[in-house]
Write a protein that binds this DNA or RNA. Structure first.
Lengths: 362, 362
DNA sequence: TTGAAAGCGCTAACAA
DNA sequence: TTGTTAGCGCTTTCAA
């Protein structure tokens, strides 16, 4: 008997291997491999015999044996914060669909904002020898975190994989990563400018986990736009916290109970804006008549709010798609297309119905 | 030289294998394997030497070699229609989180409603030897489709995996599958009854792809409830189509241009309801004052609509979690907990603000 | 408590 | 166009 029983024996009939197919077709395993992969010429008659044997035996190639014997695994890993957050699920959709287009499978894991867990997941994905590991979303960008991440990037490179940072600052040119990003600072600047152009001068900034790179950049853009127009950003108008709808609702509600003075709200993302909008509406504050409101990301829901939300469009799905292209190429016979290490996707302000001049200016 | 270069050689330094660790620690590979897996006693001193070697070498076990040599892959596959549809992303979240809790990775693939693609994905997941393959969502339940799916179920069983049908009718007790479901017919019945109890008699039924098991059941519940109250379901009030927001909007808009008579709308899911609500609102029809509206699934967005939507709560995330538990157990040392093949999760009507008695009755 | 060694199922170099 | 065969890196039986 063999040294151990494998799972299929447990399940009943032994499952067919390439050797069984070879025997039944009267050829060698090498030939079977060739027809399966279609990478070497095989005589028509031979091929047909092999194909028949495959069907007759219900043969299913073992991807692990294949991965072990060859170079790549036809698998990509993606790490997101949450499966149901539109920011992440749209990015994941881009990754999954592009991977699928290339015949690759997609392992998706969630870190829920926990940096340690993110590192652990990268390790797990490295064990899987995923052809690429794509990490989506902002990061807490301190030296320690960067060092740990850089170490993971090198470890991945050592096993022939590649770390792709998606919507997160690069780690430095000495670290083997690819990155696809977009300009948070610039987008926030443009959005704030739009508000200022409408006449707003006291703009409440709401949301984003303090220290998270995405928050930091958006807040920086907000500040720079104010200064550029000679307005001094004041701390009492800046309320960081989180990226969720719940935070938006709670923070806005609290602020509404006070006597803070502002004519517009810059929510750090659309979810926060949605929460804030609900608080505003519940309090009888009309948007945009009484206060203007903007969001960020342009998730589809932002179009469905009433009023439809003015926001910055971020091509989340395209980001995901670009991430796998950058790492793995087009998947075509000519191999990897661009050999650059960084890609920037474009964003733009989309003006809808949640912004108007402040009441005093009308 | 070895017959071929592997990927790591391409990438530079050869990556460390278990043999390297063994050499450096001065033990056999068997011992290294033992400390890595912690499944056999190893002397403390030996263990420490091995652990040091692992760190020093930056060793990362090759999951494929492991999968090849042992029984399970610590991987589960899930097939959904779309990454960003809340119905599916919540189910996927349940699967991913439970899998993660068990230390398993989750391969997620999308079929976009294409039955052939779904079968193909099952085949791919079988090649991966996923410990379980979970298929989420309704199916077109004809004999051919059932036969093909049954064949996949058997093929999976042959490689020691298991097919889990989630929110889809069982294939019959002779087919090796597990299923976790919920009562669509009963939920639709209860929801329709609620509408009737409010005084509605002409209830528009909107949405759901005709023939899809989920649609079929919901429509059946709607019809049965009407008949139970002596109301004859009439075809002119039944408009099937799709499960998306866009369909809801378009269909409702069209109907609004006609002179169809109804006092309530039963949308086949919340997305359809959201689309319909927008059409209604845009047309100046007030919900629930002019017409009542209900949805199905209770996705979080349905709480955020105004008015908040009355709907049937379906525990999507729990369904996903139950699917992996049913297939793989709790992941604890005592092995699989329940050995049943089917689990039903409970649903209930959640009454919010989108239903009122018809105007005529007030 | 440890080691030797036989596979797991496949690919690809080499030879024919 | 095809076959032979040496691995890929790990687990597990068996023996010590």
């Amino acid at each position: 008997m063999s040294p151990r029983g494998n799972r299929a024996e447990t399940a009943g009939a032994r499952m067919a291997t390439i050797a069984d197919v070879a025997t039944r077709a009267g050829v060698s395993t090498a030939t079977v491999s060739r027809v399966l992969n279609g990478n070497y010429p095989v005589a028509r008659a031979t091929r047909e015999r092999v194909e028949d044997a495959v069907v007759a035996l219900g043969y299913s190639a073992n991807a692990h044996a294949r991965a072990l014997a060859s170079a790549d695994t036809r698998t990509v890993g993606i790490i997101i914060n949450d499966m149901v957050d539109p920011f992440f699920s749209y990015a994941a959709r881009g990754v999954e669909m592009e991977a699928a287009r290339q015949g690759r499978l997609c392992i998706v894991a969630t870190a829920h904002g926990d940096a340690e867990r993110e590192l652990h997941l990268i390790d797990q994905l490295r064990e899987q020898r995923a052809d690429a590991v794509i990490v989506v979303g902002g990061a807490y960008d301190d030296a320690t975190a960067r060092a740990k991440m850089a170490e993971r990037a090198r470890a991945l490179a050592r096993v022939g994989s590649v770390l792709v940072l998606c919507g997160r600052p690069p780690l430095g040119s000495d670290v083997p990563t690819k990155t696809v990003g977009y300009d948070n600072e610039g987008g926030a600047f443009a959005l704030t400018e739009h508000l200022i152009a409408q006449g707003h001068r006291r703009i409440l900034y709401l949301g984003g986990p303090p220290g998270l790179s995405t928050s930091v950049s958006r807040l920086a853009g907000y500040r720079r736009a104010l200064r550029a127009r000679g307005i001094d950003p004041v701390d009492e108008l800046i309320h960081e916290g989180a990226f969720g709808r719940r935070f938006g609702h709670r923070a806005m509600s609290e602020i509404l109970t006070g006597d803070l003075d502002y004519t517009a709200v810059f929510a750090a993302n659309d979810l926060v804006a949605a929460g804030a909008l609900q608080a505003l509406t519940d309090a009888g504050v009309r948007v945009p008549d009484d206060v203007s409101l903007v969001g960020y990301d342009d998730i589809p829901q932002s179009y469905e709010l009433s009023p439809r939300l003015t926001t910055v469009h971020v091509p989340l799905e395209e980001m995901g798609q670009e991430a796998v292209r950058l790492a793995l190429g087009d998947g075509d016979v000519f191999g990897r297309s661009g050999s650059d290490d960084e890609r920037i996707v474009g964003t733009y302000v989309v003006m809808r119905d949640s912004v108007a001049p402040p009441a005093a200016a009308r």
